[in-house]
Structures are given as C-alpha cells and as structure tokens.
C-alpha cells in the first residue's frame, strides 16, 4: 500500500464538497491562513491502519455548506446555527470516501463519530501525515489533514 498523498486528500475533499454541499474548491496555489475563529472537526478511523482526519473551515464557509445542504439561503439564521453540524456531517462523508478510496471496500473498516469545535487561530500544530489546502471560489480556505498511524513493520 503506497502512502497517502495530498492529491488524494484534495480529490476526496473537492468531490465531497461538490457532491454533498454543492461547493466548488480547488487546491490552493499559495499558502492558506485562517483568521479569527474557525470550526475544526476531527474523525477517527480504524482499518488496515488507524488514524484521524481533521477538517478546518471558517465559520462563514460552514454556514454556506449548511445552507446548500439544507436548501436554504446563506442569510437564513438556520444556516449559521447548523454550520457546526454541517461540517461534522461533511467530515463524516469525507471519512467514508477516504477509507474506501485508500483502503478499498474489501477490508473491514470503522469510522468514529465526528467531533467539531470552535477554535481560535492560530491553530495548534498537530501531527499530520499529509494535508490538502484548498480554496473555494470565494477565495476562502479549507484544510483537510490526515494523521495516519504507522503501518505494521515489514
């Protein structure tokens, strides 16, 4: 099994954002930074190798995702109030997509429950295997990080 790549994460993140939330995102050409408070969602998984995925989004992006998923206007107060839940669910879908894409559908795998918190920037440094930094059409950043446990010794 080859090591996961940023390209794999970008593909998964981009496809899930488009298919589940009708949002278009592209790999960032420059370094992305987050300001103010952001939503950081984490989901653990177990498969051939265990690990965790982390998704970081500005709150405004979370509200847009929620609005699109619910079929309401981004200005609707429910969009903002459901932003955290929307990001959790998007990471849940990302988790499933990553597992099946990277480990395949023939191995038993387990996905944990997403945990989403509002955190202040700058974000604490966290261990990661690889990451996908992307920008929406609006220019706002989104970050998906993978922390994959070491594989069994050969």
């Amino acid at each position: 099994m080859s090591e996961p790549t940023s390209e794999l994460l970008s593909n998964v993140l981009g496809e899930v954002l488009q298919d589940a939330a009708f949002v278009f995102a592209e790999p960032a050409e420059d370094e992305i930074t987050f300001e103010g408070e952001v939503l950081r969602s984490t989901i653990a998984f177990e498969s051939v190798r265990g690990g965790a995925l982390r998704l970081v989004t500005p709150t405004r992006v979370a509200a847009e995702i929620a609005a699109n998923m619910l079929g309401i206007d981004p200005s609707d107060p429910e969009a903002e109030s459901q932003g955290r839940a929307a990001v959790s669910e998007i990471l849940n879908v990302i988790g499933g997509a990553f597992i099946t894409r990277y480990f395949g559908t023939q191995v038993p795998s387990q996905l944990g429950l997403p945990v989403t918190d509002l955190v202040a920037t700058p974000l604490p440094v966290a261990r990661r295997t690889c990451a996908a930094a992307m920008r929406l059409e609006s220019g706002e950043p989104v970050l998906l990080e993978l922390d994959l446990e070491e594989g069994p010794a050969a």
Binding site: G96, I99, T100, T105, L111
Partner: peptide, 23 residues
C-alpha cells in the same frame, strides 16, 4: 457513508431493505 462491501451485505442480510450511500 460508503463502507466495506461486507458491512453492506451484512446489513441487507440482517433485514435492511436497501442501502443508499451518502451523499
């Protein structure tokens, strides 16, 4: 969310009528 084929089969064998993948 998408998962292993084994899990889908187990669910359908146990009594689920159909499986729809998210999204």
């Amino acid at each position: 969310t998408p998962m292993s084929e084994e899990r889908v089969e187990r669910l359908l064998d146990t009594g689920a009528r159909a499986y729809l993948a998210k999204p």
